[in-house]
């Protein structure tokens, strides 16, 4: 027994605390996006007609597909954690790779959406944008800022998952030590939750 304690001294792990720390970080993310949602709600209340007109420029089909893509990627991460808990390392890695593919799909669709709009001169500073009403300008400014910030989170989440895949392969994350995988999953689900609110507020207001 004493020998065991020596081997582990200084390396006591506390998965509960790791998870709690991750949640604390997620709360700061909630406040970051929550503040932006508050700004959006107030400006929308003050410019109802303009926000409605501007939202008609957004492509509902693309938004819906992206929602489905993100929800599915959340499913594959959650399944990956379950697979790891059951000891199926191979399945766990494959599900994470699938998640990364969905993340790329999301970003590619986002790229097409943005470039279509920028192609029509609808970006702050461009000709078409400058001719819009102040309320519509606000809508597009918030659209680019919030979906852009969300896209950045998708990229960061993807990198996080990539790191976890590496660590599973090198044996640092394994069925008896998988809190990093769980935390990467928590981050990814938060990115999904933010999109769950962004989608109806920007695309579906009529």
């Amino acid at each position: 027994m004493a020998e065991y304690l020596m081997v582990n001294s200084g390396h006591n792990r506390d998965d509960q605390a790791s998870k709690l720390g991750m949640w604390l970080f997620l709360f700061t993310e909630l406040l970051l996006f929550g503040g932006l949602f508050l700004v959006y709600s107030v400006y929308r209340y003050m410019n109802q007609e303009a926000f409605l007109q501007a939202s008609l420029h957004l492509n509902i089909a693309m938004g819906t597909v992206n929602t489905a893509v993100l929800l599915t990627s959340s499913l594959t991460v959650a399944m990956s954690v379950s697979a790891m808990q059951k000891g199926n390392i191979k399945v766990s890695i494959n599900l994470l790779i699938l998640t990364l593919l969905f993340a790329c799909t999301f970003l590619v669709i986002k790229y097409f959406e943005w470039s279509a709009k920028i192609g029509h001169g609808l970006f702050p500073g461009m000709e078409h944008y400058n001719m819009l009403e102040p309320g519509e300008k606000l809508f597009f400014f918030l659209y680019y800022f919030m979906t852009g910030l969300h896209g950045l989170h998708v990229i960061i989440g993807g990198i996080f998952i990539g790191i976890v895949i590496r660590k599973i392969k090198t044996g640092k994350v394994r069925p008896d030590r998988y809190i990093l995988l769980e935390n990467a999953g928590l981050y990814w689900h938060l990115v999904d939750i933010i999109w769950i609110f962004l989608f109806p507020l920007f695309y579906l207001i009529h």
């Binding site: 027994m1 020998e3 065991y4 304690l5 081997v7 582990n8 390396h11 006591n12 792990r13 506390d14 998965d15 509960q16 959650a78 954690v81 379950s82 808990q85 059951k86 008896d176 030590r177």
Partner: peptide, 19 residues
């Protein structure tokens, strides 16, 4: 040996729920 040591010192022995 090290694995076992980690398990001994793990302060949350509760069974993990797997969805």
């Amino acid at each position: 040996q090290e694995n076992e040591a980690t398990r001994v010192l793990d302060d949350d022995p509760k069974e993990q729920h797997i969805t």
